[in-house]
Design a binder for these strands. Structure first.
Length: 562
RNA sequence: UGGGAUGUCGUCUAAUGGUAGGACAGCGGACUCUGGAUCCGUAUGUGAGGGUUCAAAUCCUUCCAUCCCAGCCA
C-alpha cells in the first residue's frame, strides 16, 4: 500500500505524534486496533482501522490487531474470523502482531493480586442492584461499600476462591478502591473482575472470573508497548481510570490514550447492537446484505478497499461529533471504479427495437472499447442485428425540451454501432409503447458518419439474439432519514427503514460476455452505473448488485425544472 | 441542576497570534460516440457578546448550543 499517491492530510493525532517524536518521548510508534469479536466490522471500524494502520505505515511503526475478548457471553470465533478477513481485505497487515486480551488473563490476574496486596482493591458482595444504589447519581456522590474495609488477607482469600469457582455468577466482584465521591462515575470504585461461569472461545473453561474492559485494556496496551492508544470519544471519561491502573501497577510503559470522534454516516446506523438486530430480526439478509454498512456488506455491494481507504482519508479525524454525507462514499467508489471497471452494455427495462432496413438474420460483430479511461483495457466484440432492445426510459413519445434521446423522427447513436432514426411507434390497445421501428444509416457503422453530422444522443442497447437475461438488484438507502439520532418521540429506528431499499429486477438483459463474470467482479453498465457480480452469481443465473449509479446531470436538471 | 468534551461554508476538514484554505455536495460553462469521465469558473463559513493586541478562528471572559457518563458491556 506504499503507492497510495495521496497527500497526507494532517490531524490532531498526527500533531501529537509529531511532537512526541520531536521531543524524544518516542523513537517510533505502536498503535493497535482492538475490536471486540461480538459482531461484524462496519465502515466506522474501517475509519479506525485506516487511522491506526495508516499511522503505523506513515510513521514506519507498527499496528497490532488485538481482540478485546473479555466477555465470553457475547463473543464468538465467527466474529474473530470475519474481523481478520475484513481487515485483510481492506488491505492491512498485522504481520505476526496478532493478540487477544485473553492472552493476558494470567498477567491480569497477577496484577489484580498486587492491587489487593497494596490495599487498592477489595472483594465486594454487593449485588448489581445494590451496587447501583451505592454508586449514587450524576449529581449525588456514591457511598462506600460495606465490604470496602475487608482485610487484605480476606480479600486475597475471597478473590482466589472467586477464581476457583466457589461463588455463583454475580455474587461477588473485585473492585478498585478509588473514590466513591468522584464526579467521574468511572472512578467510583469500579468493578475490575466479575464472576462468569461461561466458557471462553479461547480459554475454554479455565476461568470462572473475567476482567472488565477498563482494567484489561490499559494493561494490554502497556504489555504490548503501545505508544498511542486511540479510541473513540465515549472513552474520554475513562481516561483517568486508564491512567490510574497503569500508575498503580508495575507495567512496562504507560501508553497515552487519545480519543477521536467516531464516524456517523447519513441514512444508516453504525451501532453493532442495531446492526445485529437488523440481522437477527430479518430486516436485512445477513451481515453481508449489500445494504448494510458492514465491511462484508459493502464488499458484496461492490465497494473496493481502495475506495474505502480513500474515504477514510477524506473524512479526516477530529474530536467534534459529525455526520458524513453518504455522497462522499459514492464519490470515492465512482472515482475508483471509473478507472478500473470494464464497460458493458445492459438494459434494465427493455423495449423492443426493430431496424426495418437491416437485413433479417444478419448478425455482425462490432468493436467496443472496454474502458475509455484505460487504453490497456482493450476492446471486445458486441453482436448487432435487426432486433434489439433499448432502455424504455430512453424513449419519449412527446419529448420534453432538451431531450436528445429517442423520440419519433429523431436520430440517435447506438453506442459502438450505428445512427438510427425512430420511424414508427407501436402501441398496444392500452396505449403502451411495445416496439420502436427504426431505420439505420449503414454509412454510420461504428457510430460516426463522414458528413460530420451531429448526433447528440447516444444510447445503449443489447442484441436480442445474443443477450442473456439476468437478475439485477438495485439499492437505495437503508433508512429514509439521514440522521437516525433525530427520530420522533416514541418511534424506533426501525420505523424509519426504507421499504424501497431493495428492488429486484428480473427484466434485465445483458450482453453475453457478462455471463462469464466472476463473483465480486465489477463493471460499469454503460449509462446506468457500477455493478458487481453477486457472491451467488453463476453463468447460468447471473446476478448483479448495483454499487451506485453514474452521475446523472440530465436527471438532476429534470428534477430541478419540476 | 455533577463531571468530561465539542462548536470553522450545506457536509467533512485545515489554518498552533499574521491573506480563513481544501474536499464532497451546489451552481455556471467548455468538451464528449456514456447527459459518464475530463477541464474551467463560481457562491457560501469562524455559535453569541465583551476584552487583550498593530493584528484573534486562535489568548482571556461571560453566555449559548450540542454530545458523552449512573453495565458485574466494550
Amino acid at each position: 500500500m506504499e503507492n497510495e499517491e495521496k497527500t497526507i492530510v494532517t490531524n490532531f493525532i498526527r500533531n501529537i505524534i509529531d511532537e512526541d517524536l520531536k521531543s524524544g518521548k518516542h523513537d517510533y510508534i505502536i498503535t493497535r486496533f482492538p475490536p471486540e469479536p461480538n459482531g461484524y466490522l462496519h465502515i466506522g471500524h474501517a475509519k479506525s482501522i485506516c487511522l491506526n494502520f495508516g499511522l503505523a505505515r506513515d510513521y514506519k511503526g507498527r499496528c497490532h490487531l488485538r481482540f478485546d475478548d473479555t466477555n465470553p457471553v457475547k463473543e464468538d470465533v465467527e466474529y474473530v474470523n470475519s474481523i481478520m478477513e475484513d481487515v485483510r481485505w481492506l488491505g492491512w497487515d498485522w504481520n505476526d502482531k496478532l493478540f487477544y486480551s485473553s492472552d493476558y488473563f494470567d498477567k491480569l490476574y497477577e496484577y489484580a493480586e498486587i492491587l489487593i496486596k497494596d490495599g487498592k482493591a477489595f472483594v465486594c458482595d454487593l449485588s448489581m442492584e445494590e451496587l447501583r444504589d451505592y454508586r449514587g447519581t450524576l449529581t449525588v456522590p456514591g457511598k462506600n461499600s460495606p465490604y470496602r474495609d475487608r482485610s487484605i488477607a480476606e480479600n486475597l482469600d475471597l478473590f482466589r476462591r472467586m477464581k476457583a469457582g466457589e461463588f455463583p455468577d454475580g455474587s461477588k466482584s473485585l473492585r478498585a478502591k478509588i473514590d466513591m465521591a468522584s464526579p467521574n462515575l468511572n472512578m467510583r470504585d469500579p468493578v475490575i473482575y466479575r464472576i462468569k461461569k461461561t466458557d471462553h472461545h479461547r480459554t475454554g473453561d479455565s476461568w470462572q472470573i473475567y476482567p472488565m474492559y477498563d482494567y484489561t485494556h490499559c494493561i494490554s496496551d502497556a504489555l504490548e508497548g503501545i505508544t498511542h492508544s486511540i479510541c473513540t470519544l465515549e472513552f474520554e471519561d475513562h481516561r483517568p481510570l486508564y491512567d490510574w491502573f497503569l500508575d498503580q501497577l508495575p507495567v512496562p510503559c504507560h501508553p497515552r490514550q487519545i480519543e477521536f470522534a467516531r464516524l456517523n454516516l447519513s441514512y444508516t446506523v453504525m451501532s453493532k447492537r442495531l446492526l445485529l438486530e437488523l440481522v437477527k430480526k430479518g430486516y436485512v439478509n445477513g451481515w453481508d446484505d449489500p445494504r448494510m454498512p458492514t465491511i462484508a456488506g459493502m464488499r458484496r455491494r461492490g465497494f473496493t478497499p481502495e475506495a474505502i481507504r480513500d474515504f477514510a482519508d477524506r473524512i479526516g479525524v477530529a474530536k467534534a461529533n459529525s455526520m458524513v454525507d453518504y455522497d462522499l462514499l459514492n464519490f470515492c467508489v465512482r472515482e475508483d471504479l471509473n478507472k478500473k471497471a470494464l464497460r458493458r452494455m445492459a438494459v434494465l427495462n427493455p423495449i423492443k427495437l426493430t431496424i426495418s432496413n437491416y437485413p433479417e438474420g444478419k448478425i455482425e460483430e462490432l468493436d467496443a472499447e472496454n474502458n475509455p479511461e484505460d487504453p490497456n483495457a482493450g476492446s471486445r466484440k458486441v453482436s448487432f442485428s435487426r432486433n434489439l432492445y433499448v432502455e424504455r426510459e430512453d424513449f419519449m413519445d412527446e419529448p420534453v425540451k432538451g431531450w436528445f434521446r429517442l423520440a419519433p423522427g429523431k436520430e440517435v447513436r447506438l453506442k459502438h454501432a450505428y445512427y438510427i432514426t425512430c420511424e414508427k411507434v407501436i402501441k398496444d390497445k392500452d396505449d403502451n409503447v411495445t416496439e420502436l421501428i427504426c431505420s439505420y444509416d449503414p454509412e454510420s457503422r461504428g457510430g460516426w458518419s463522414k458528413d460530420g453530422r451531429k448526433v447528440k444522443g447516444t444510447i445503449h442497447w443489447v442484441c436480442e439474439q445474443t443477450a442473456i437475461p439476468m437478475e439485477v438488484r438495485l439499492y437505495e438507502h437503508l433508512f429514509r432519514i439521514p440522521d437516525l439520532a433525530e427520530i420522533d418521540e416514541g418511534k424506533s429506528y426501525l420505523d424509519y427503514l426504507n421499504p424501497e431499499s431493495l428492488h429486484v429486477n428480473h427484466l434485465a438483459l445483458a450482453e453475453r460476455s457478462l455471463a462469464e463474470a466472476k463473483p465480486l467482479e465489477k463493471f460499469q453498465f454503460l449509462r446506468l452505473g457500477y455493478f458487481c457480480a453477486d457472491t451467488c452469481h453463476t453463468a447460468d443465473k447471473p446476478v448483479f448488485n448495483r454499487v451506485t449509479t453514474l452521475r446523472d446531470s440530465w436527471a438532476k436538471q429534470q428534477k430541478k425544472s419540476k
